[in-house]
Amino acid sequence: TEEVEKIVRELQKRGVSQEEIQRILKRNGIDPRDVEHVVRRLR
Score class of each variant (00 low, 15 high):
26 K>D: 09
35 V>K: 00
15 G>N: 06
27 R>F: 11
43 R>D: 13
31 D>F: 01
25 L>Y: 01
12 Q>K: 08
15 G>F: 03
5 E>Y: 14
1 T>Q: 08
5 E>T: 06
7 I>G: 01
14 R>W: 12
36 E>F: 03
23 R>S: 10
11 L>E: 00
24 I>R: 06
17 S>F: 03
10 E>M: 11
11 L>Q: 01
20 E>W: 11
13 K>Y: 07
39 V>Y: 08
20 E>L: 09
39 V>W: 07
26 K>L: 15
2 E>D: 11
26 K>S: 12
27 R>E: 14
24 I>K: 03
15 G>A: 03
3 E>G: 06
26 K>H: 13
13 K>W: 07
34 D>N: 04
29 G>A: 02
17 S>C: 00
3 E>T: 09
24 I>D: 01
37 H>W: 11
18 Q>A: 13
33 R>F: 05
3 E>N: 10
42 L>R: 03
30 I>M: 07
31 D>C: 00
10 E>P: 01
19 E>I: 09
5 E>V: 09
10 E>L: 12
12 Q>G: 05
16 V>D: 02
26 K>Y: 13
18 Q>D: 14
12 Q>W: 15
42 L>D: 05
33 R>P: 02
17 S>G: 08
40 R>E: 15
34 D>F: 13
13 K>F: 07
9 R>V: 08
31 D>K: 03
18 Q>Y: 15
22 Q>N: 07
31 D>R: 04
2 E>I: 10
12 Q>A: 11
40 R>L: 07
14 R>S: 09
19 E>M: 11
43 R>L: 15
19 E>H: 11
16 V>I: 11
2 E>G: 07
15 G>W: 04
30 I>E: 02
5 E>M: 12
26 K>I: 15
32 P>D: 09
23 R>K: 09
24 I>E: 09
9 R>F: 05
35 V>G: 01
1 T>P: 10
20 E>Q: 07
37 H>Q: 14
37 H>M: 13
7 I>Q: 08
8 V>E: 00
6 K>A: 08
33 R>W: 05
11 L>K: 00
14 R>M: 11
35 V>W: 12
41 R>K: 15
9 R>Q: 06
41 R>W: 05
23 R>T: 12
41 R>D: 14
3 E>R: 09
20 E>Y: 06
11 L>C: 15
25 L>N: 00
5 E>W: 14
38 V>Q: 01
35 V>L: 08
16 V>L: 12
20 E>N: 10
26 K>P: 00
32 P>R: 02
27 R>Y: 09
13 K>V: 07
10 E>A: 11
5 E>S: 05
6 K>N: 06
26 K>W: 11
28 N>H: 14
5 E>F: 13
4 V>Q: 02
1 T>L: 15
29 G>I: 02
28 N>R: 12
42 L>Q: 04
31 D>V: 02
11 L>D: 00
21 I>E: 00
14 R>L: 11
42 L>Y: 04
25 L>H: 00
18 Q>V: 15
2 E>T: 06
17 S>P: 08
10 E>V: 09
